[in-house]
């Protein structure tokens, strides 16, 4: 039996459809970079959004793509933050970008080692194990006060100019451009990764590990790999925080941070990479707005939002944004053109 080339061509097109850039994506990044010029007075909060978005992107890689839930992702964030702060304070690596990479690598090493703890067990086990690791690290950082500054945090950190040229300023101008650029580059890499055969195998592992192994996928190895990569992303997010604020404290490891992160991803929706970024935008602006309005009730509002999302999304909270994504896909003229073609073909028959 021979397969007509047209069938292969259309199959190719369908397979690569996931990876195609949508117009809304272009708009998203254009706006993010336009904000550099349009909202200079908002650069501080935009910087926070950038590293929070990166942090949530990291969680999306393991939760949205590999199905590994975590309530202790701050472990990697915190290790990245302390590494970056320590490298700068002791002038071990002075150039921020290099220090950022080093922080990511340290977090990756920790991710690799701890990944073996999340291979087995139910979601509940994973929640507990990841939570435990983060608490453990917090206590470690606390007891090694001579190194980390203990409960006072790591004081007296000075971050040198990026590439030896761009100084960090108190308005967050450099900080935003720097964080956004890092986020954008890491996003491109993640986008490539999830649309690769490796990314597809992650979806398989998440969807049905039994079948995944039955087609020859080493489920454990794939989970270790993505957990390690995600840890690196989280570490870099933490390092961005440390570098843009020239400070690191025990709070980087806190339970609240891990829990908020899960909330950010749920707000934006997991499993399509933009969820973490959109969630970060909504979360930060809501926090900013509501905490000015009613400082003491901020957690109340967050709780309310969570309840609403869960009600709207029912049991599939991670995909409550699916209608929006469908809409976005419909905006893509290629999808549209293909639909039209298919429709007219149907009519002919």
């Amino acid at each position: 039996m021979t397969t007509p080339p047209s069938a292969v061509r259309s199959a190719t097109e369908w397979l690569s459809a996931r990876a195609r850039w949508q117009p809304l994506e272009g708009l998203f990044w254009f706006s993010a970079f336009a904000a550099v010029f349009l909202f200079p007075e908002r650069h501080l909060i935009l910087t926070e959004i950038a590293w929070l978005g990166l942090f949530a992107l990291s969680l999306d890689l393991i939760l949205g793509y590999a199905g590994i839930i975590s309530l202790g992702h701050a472990a990697f964030f915190g290790v990245g933050a302390y590494t970056a702060a320590l490298l700068a304070k002791h002038e071990i690596i002075n150039e921020p970008v290099l220090a950022l990479l080093a922080s990511g690598l340290v977090a990756m090493a920790l991710g690799f080692v701890t990944s073996f703890l999340v291979l087995r067990g139910s979601d509940l086990t994973r929640l507990m194990v990841t939570l435990g690791v983060a608490l453990l690290l917090r206590e470690l950082a606390n007891s090694f006060g001579w190194l980390t500054g203990g409960a006072d945090g790591l004081q007296g950190v000075t971050i040198k100019p990026v590439f030896g040229i761009f100084r960090f300023d108190m308005f967050g101008h450099t900080g935003y451009v720097y964080s956004l650029s890092v986020l954008f580059i890491l996003f491109l890499i993640a986008r490539r990764l999830v649309n690769s055969p490796f990314g597809l195998s992650l979806l398989a592992v998440k969807g049905n590990p039994l079948r995944a192994s039955a087609i020859g996928v080493s489920v454990d190895a794939r989970m270790v790999a993505i957990y390690t990569v995600a840890a690196g992303y989280a570490g870099i997010a933490g390092a961005l925080l440390a570098q843009t604020t020239a400070f690191a404290s025990l709070e980087v490891f806190s339970f609240d941070r891990s829990a908020d992160l899960l909330l950010v991803l749920i707000i934006g929706g997991a499993g399509y990479l933009y969820g973490g970024l959109i969630g970060a935008i909504i979360f930060k602006f809501m926090q900013d707005y509501l905490s000015v309005l009613t400082p003491q009730y901020w957690p109340f509002w967050i709780g309310l939002v969570l309840v609403v999302i869960v009600l709207v999304g029912r049991d599939r909270i991670t995909t409550w944004t699916a209608p929006i994504r469908l809409f976005a896909a419909r905006l893509d003229w290629r999808t549209f053109a293909r639909r039209e073609a298919a429709a007219s073909k149907d009519q002919c028959q």
Partner: peptide, 8 residues
């Protein structure tokens, strides 16, 4: 394990 090649 190809992670830099787009599916398809």
């Amino acid at each position: 394990l190809d992670w830099w090649r787009i599916v398809g």
